[in-house]
């Protein structure tokens, strides 16, 4: 059985999200938690890119020797690629803020354990 590239990609995106949520829930190390969170964002981004994929499609640039109907039928969908770029930038900036906070908190508590730093007394 041959799984199409698109379906496989959707499965990968879904498993990235689930692995990410698992890591955020169950791993105690803050850096590992943050890697898990990055996975969730990556899963969402991969999902969006996959939607723009069209089997056998062409690049969405209108070249001089094309007819409009041929272009409209075969070009892949350009919007997701534009969106995903923005979303990657957002993900990178939140990741930077998170890691910066972890650096500060690591200096203050001398630990990376979430239960120690973010426990009950830290309100």
């Amino acid at each position: 059985m041959v799984i199409s590239a698109q379906l496989f990609s959707f499965f990968t995106a879904g498993s990235l999200v689930i692995i990410g949520i698992f890591a955020a829930l169950f791993l105690d190390n803050l850096i590992k938690k943050i890697i898990g969170l990055a996975f969730i964002g990556d899963g969402a981004n991969l999902f969006i890119i996959t939607m723009g994929y069209k089997p056998g499609g062409i690049v969405y640039i209108f070249l001089p020797n094309m007819t409009i109907s041929n272009f409209a039928q075969n070009a892949s969908y350009p919007l997701p690629f534009a969106l995903v770029l923005t979303s990657i930038v957002i993900g990178a900036s939140t990741l930077a803020v998170m890691l910066g906070l972890v650096i500060v908190l690591n200096k203050r508590h001398d630990s990376l354990s979430a239960s120690k730093i973010l426990g009950d007394e830290s309100d």
Partner: peptide
């Protein structure tokens, strides 16, 4: 509903 992070994330998921 305390401020423990593990509690919060548990209820959110």
């Amino acid at each position: 509903q305390n401020d423990s992070f593990s509690n919060m994330i548990f209820y959110i998921v």
